[in-house]
Write a protein that binds this DNA or RNA. Structure first.
Lengths: 231, 231
DNA sequence: AGGAATTTGTGCGTATGTATC
DNA sequence: AGATACATACGCACAAATTCC
């Protein structure tokens, strides 16, 4: 009756609902239909639906209130191309974009931590924006072993798309260290060189362990906050 | 049949099993009896037992292997009391401790975000140390609905142990927002009131969705960094 | 204030699929 | 290949919390 290769129904349902939330078809505060009604519409048993909803609850998408209903709680939007971007406007959210400032292949300076197999790297400097508001500058060092040359046109604001589709490089894990530092001398306005800023240092690893990328980001703490979700 | 005031059966069972593990009657690697057998012995339905076992799995006490059995896993690392503490010395690591500065139950001020069911909370102020070096001050608001009164002796530096064992409150998820702010006027040295600091705002949720706690931490970015590991 | 209707929570029992031994 | 054990899925009955009249 059931295709042997298919995912469990409750996984299908929960993923469908997550897509609905990600796409905005369900938004924060929405109440879902009653469980029995919803299960009937979907052609599944109530218990199966409840298992899907439990999944959403565990992931923080849903709040279940006995006697009242199931309510969408939108705080997360993982697994998109911004999954590793952790700066938001102080009020929450904001569409991230980036302006390329410079792009060069060069020897890794000695103040970088060890990463990658090459002694050269691509140094990418960008101005980051949220809803077009400049909020940070970043300097990314992609190890030189992945590609000989990067053209500025390749990047624009879709750096990780480029990694994934042109280089076959998929970042699966990263570690951030957040503190404070003075903005670098090359920063454009509105940050100014030497001014005290939030500071993020990141090392990123590809699928099976090798560290591929090092980056540092200086952000204006009045314009953006770093978000971290823990489990 | 069921005492009206009793906990759900599946909670009773899962807590009984946790006690068995804590007391050493079940140790790492032990295999539990088959579900149907165990359910029969306990006089409950298989589904109810499975719910108890799912609880243990979520808390890291148990590994369930289809076709094989349920195995005790005393990892300790997943449920350790520092699992959600994210400040480290600039060189990495450091043993976290805390000094209690003040503890009061009071009305939640209006500048707190909405959380919990009560309009009162316990305000806990602590000085945080790493390897005895003071690195931050924090103010925690625990929702007032969990307990009427907290005695200072209860806390010291084992706040989450208190949550877990005295209140039955288990924090399963949290969201941090990291930026910068001026240290509060009540801070002891070495931070000083009004000085610019790293700033962490956190909302924490308990197992099944309700937000239970709000906290804010001011840290000296010269003495500590916030670590975030992403997947 | 209070009772009825609605909605989720708990618990039971069963049948069938799938992984492990 | 067969036996064992967990995974998925269905459906039902009643309890408890909330909402509405």
């Amino acid at each position: 009756m059931q295709k042997t290769n298919a995912l469990p129904r409750y996984v299908e349902i929960s993923e469908m609902l997550i897509r609905d939330i990600a796409a905005g078809r369900l938004i924060n505060g929405d109440r879902l239909p009653a469980e029995r009604e919803m299960a009937g519409d979907l052609g599944i048993a109530v218990g199966t639906l409840r298992k899907a909803l439990a999944e959403l609850t565990a992931q923080g998408y849903l709040e279940r209130v006995q006697g009242s209903g199931n309510y969408v709680r939108q705080s997360d939007s993982s697994s998109n191309i911004y999954a590793f971007f952790r700066l938001e406007l102080p009020g929450g959210g904001g569409l991230p974009t980036a302006d390329l400032l410079s792009l060069e292949r060069r020897k890794k300076p000695s103040d970088l931590p060890g990463f990658g197999r090459s002694d050269e790297g691509h140094r990418i400097r960008r101005l980051r924006r949220l809803n077009d508001i400049p909020i940070a500058v970043e300097e990314i060092w992609l190890d030189g072993s992945y590609v000989d040359h990067i053209a500025p046109d390749d990047l624009a604001d879709a750096l990780y798309y480029y990694y994934k589709n042109r280089l076959g490089l998929r970042i699966s894990r990263a570690e951030d260290r957040i503190g404070a530092a003075e903005a670098p001398e090359w920063t454009p306005p509105p940050l100014s060189p030497g001014r005290n800023c939030g500071f993020i240092e990141r090392i990123s690893w590809e699928q099976h362990g090798a560290s591929a990328e090092y980056s540092r980001t200086w952000f204006d703490p009045a314009r953006a906050v770093y978000i971290s979700r823990l489990k």
